[in-house]
């Protein structure tokens, strides 16, 4: 049986752990607020952007754009993988990478090359340990993902797609549904599905300058970036929500452990007192005898 001193030490240890998990919970919730603010600030841009794309979308069908081209046969794949930089957020990263790796395994089993474009350390580490090619690994920016990050990634995958290195590009990220729910999500970035553009009936007849085809030239690459940025923001919010949850659980487990250990400590102390009493009583009895 553990001595009284051991139990006391253990309680002190668990209490310290609880302090840390509690602090991490609060940090994560502050960061989540920041991430949600960024999402809110991005929304006007995204909404307007989809509006404009919807306006053009109806007219774009006949204009064949290289970014819309579906290549037959070949299937060399690029995977843009958004994860967090740090762990301690439950199964958040594991779920995203598992989904991406499953997809990658299927692709390479079919004889296609797979390349990873990683945003966030956890995803890159996973891709590296499995020996995939990593043309792009942006690490250490997930704390405050900026639009330039999405821009850089977007330019890279578009270049590789147009030069024929990749035949399709998929994006894996953590979708932020609510505080309690985040799930891995996948979208195909390239080639852009023609029906991806929200189909709204155009009521206004716009004048386009330059012509629709050239306008698409400007619009479609930005569409890729907008999608990547949205995924980044979602991942960042999801990471912090997941960490909040994980840390909340950890704090509660600590509480439970402390309760159990305190009980044990009281029992041990009582046992020691009882033992001492027995000694004394026994001694007195012996003297009498």
């Amino acid at each position: 049986m553990a001595s009284l001193k051991d139990v006391r030490l253990k309680i002190a240890g668990v209490t310290k752990t609880r302090q840390i998990t509690k602090a991490m919970y609060m940090v994560a919730s502050a960061k989540l607020r920041g991430a949600q603010q960024r999402i809110d600030r991005f929304r006007p841009y995204a909404d307007k952007f989809y509006d404009m794309l919807g306006n053009l979308g109806g007219k774009a069908v006949d204009a064949a754009h290289p970014l819309l081209e579906v290549r037959q046969g070949a299937g060399d794949t690029g995977i843009v993988l958004c994860t967090s930089d740090r762990g301690l957020c439950g199964g958040f990263n594991a779920n995203i990478t598992a989904a991406a790796m499953k997809f990658a395994a299927e692709k390479s089993a079919a004889g296609n090359k797979v390349a990873f474009y990683c945003l966030g350390r956890k995803g890159r580490d996973a891709a590296r340990s499995l020996g995939y090619e990593i043309p792009l690994g942006l690490i250490g920016h997930m704390n405050s993902p900026g639009y330039d990050l999405a821009s850089e990634t977007g330019v890279r995958v578009i270049d590789d797609f147009l030069s024929g290195v990749l035949d399709e590009v998929h994006l894996f990220y953590g979708e932020f549904i609510s505080l309690a729910r985040q799930k891995p999500a996948e979208i195909r970035l390239l080639p852009i599905a023609a029906d991806d553009a929200p189909d709204e009936k155009t009521t206004v007849d716009y004048i386009y300058e330059p012509a629709v085809a050239e306008l698409l030239n400007e619009l479609l690459p930005r569409y890729i970036k907008v999608q990547i940025y949205r995924a980044l923001l979602d991942t960042s919010a999801g990471e912090n929500a997941a960490r909040m949850q994980a840390m909340d659980n950890a704090t509660r487990n600590c509480d439970e452990m402390i309760r159990g250990l305190t009980l044990l400590m009281n029992k041990t102390r009582q046992a020691a007192i009882t033992n001492e009493l027995i000694d004394i009583v026994g001694g007195v009895e012996a003297l009498k005898g």
Partner: peptide, 19 residues
Amino acid sequence: PGLLGEFGVLPGHIPFISA
């Protein structure tokens, strides 16, 4: 600054999209 040159917009302009 439009892609094809500077353009001006006054109230009552027709619907217009430009890069």
